[in-house]
Simulated assay, not measured.
Amino acid sequence: MRVVVLSGSNVGTKTRTAMNYTVAEIEKNYPDSEITLLDLAEYQMQFSDGRNYLEYEGDTKYIAETVMNADALFIGTPIFQASIPASLKNVFDLLPEKALRDKVVSMVVTAGSPKHYLIAEQQLRPILSYMKAQLVHTYVFIEEKDFYR
């Protein structure tokens, strides 16, 4: 099984910390899985301009193809200004409408405030549903206070 763990921000460290933990748990519980960690902070992505994802080059094409080839996807996102980051939205904009069909998708959300717990429900879940993902019904929500150093 090809599992992609996506850290969906190009700034900060908390989401990457959560996704590193996610990778460790997947490796421990599913050792035969092929796991790819994509941290958007490590790539130079172009903005989506409506082209087919196969027409992009470099990091942009690599990320799009890696997501498209996944069997399962863990999406990690911080919440900035009561919204998902533009870098994560750009990944979704690069992909075709049915890009996540038959892919099991889970969400890991990091936020500085408990007030942001519904952002995943109001913003991320509708995008993933539109793209035909098989969504895990619950998601992980990690607040600032849950991180220690």
Rank of each mutant, 00 (worst) to 15 (best):
D146K: 08
V105M: 07
K61C: 07
G112N: 06
E97H: 03
N69P: 06
A41E: 13
N29A: 08
F141I: 12
S9Y: 02
V67M: 10
L88R: 00
H137Y: 01
S87W: 02
V108W: 03
Y53Q: 00
L95Q: 03
L135M: 12
R125D: 11
L100R: 03
Q81W: 09
L37G: 00
T77M: 08
A72D: 12
L38S: 04
I75R: 04
N20M: 12
Y62Q: 10
T13R: 13
D32K: 14
Q81R: 14
A82V: 09
F74Y: 13
V11F: 05
P126C: 05
H116I: 11
L100I: 08
V91P: 04
V91S: 08
I79D: 12
R125K: 15
Q134V: 14
K103H: 04
V104Q: 09
R16P: 04
L135Y: 00
R101E: 15
F92A: 08
T36I: 14
A18N: 00
I26E: 03
E57S: 13
Y53L: 09
G50T: 14
A18P: 06
V108Y: 03
V4Q: 05
N10R: 10
K98F: 05
E144P: 05
K28R: 15
A64W: 05
F47T: 13
F74E: 06
Q46G: 02
F74M: 14
D71N: 15
G58V: 13
V108E: 07
V104G: 02
H116M: 11
A99S: 15
N29P: 01
F92H: 04
T13S: 14
I35H: 01
G112I: 09
R101F: 06
E55W: 02
L124W: 00
E55I: 11
L95W: 03
F92R: 03
S83F: 04
R16K: 13
L128V: 12
A99L: 11
F147E: 10
A24D: 15
M1Q: 07
L128M: 12
V23W: 06
E144Q: 15
V11T: 15
L100T: 00
